Amino acid sequence: MKKKILVLDDEVSICLLLENFLSKNYEVISLNNGLDALLWLDNNIPDLIISDIQMETMDGYEFLTNLRQRGFTKHTPCIMLSGKSESKERIKCYKLGAQDYLTKPFNPEELEELVKKNLFPIHYAIDW
């Protein structure tokens, strides 16, 4: 069974890009705002979440805060995407419980490595 990844971004083009890139190896579900994602999470548990920060209805910070307050998703790995590269933005995400932070435009190879690291943390390294 393929691992399930929830992609959350209000830019349809980013969702399509991530779906296209990730769907070869993973089941990908795309949603366009934090409220829809929280409703979806009421009945589903993904193996990984990739979320934009700057969104209209509910920003990524608020989504991440809600995600960590829920029992079933408290420990679900989350990679945050942002157009902001400032260290303070990364630190804020880490303090809210994000595992990783990737700046847009992102390198697909780096995204692939972050996804593998978060989905398979023990078996991630090729050489020990």
Rank of each mutant, 00 (worst) to 15 (best):
C78F: 03
G60S: 03
L81T: 02
F21C: 02
S30T: 08
S85F: 03
Q99K: 06
G71D: 14
L96W: 04
E27S: 07
E62Q: 13
I5H: 00
Y101V: 09
G60N: 02
N25L: 06
T76F: 11
P121T: 04
V28Y: 00
P77N: 01
D127E: 08
L8H: 07
L119Y: 10
V115S: 02
F106A: 08
Y61E: 15
P108D: 12
D47L: 05
N66S: 13
L64C: 15
M1N: 07
C93M: 13
T76Y: 11
A37L: 07
L67H: 07
D10Y: 06
R68N: 05
F120S: 12
R70T: 12
D9L: 01
D42G: 00
S13I: 11
I91N: 06
L114M: 15
L67C: 10
D9F: 00
L31I: 09
N32L: 04
D42E: 09
P121S: 02
V7Y: 00
L96M: 09
E89V: 03
P46A: 06
S87W: 11
L17G: 14
I49N: 07
L16F: 06
N44G: 02
D42N: 05
N66C: 12
V28F: 00
A125H: 15
A125T: 11
E89I: 01
E89R: 00
I50N: 04
I14A: 02
I126W: 04
I53H: 00
C93Q: 13
L39R: 10
I49K: 05
F21D: 05
G34D: 00
F120V: 12
F120M: 12
L67T: 08
L114A: 05
N107H: 12
D127R: 05
N32V: 03
D52F: 01
K95Y: 09
V12P: 12
Y26K: 04
V7M: 02
K24N: 08
L39F: 06
N25P: 00
V28G: 02
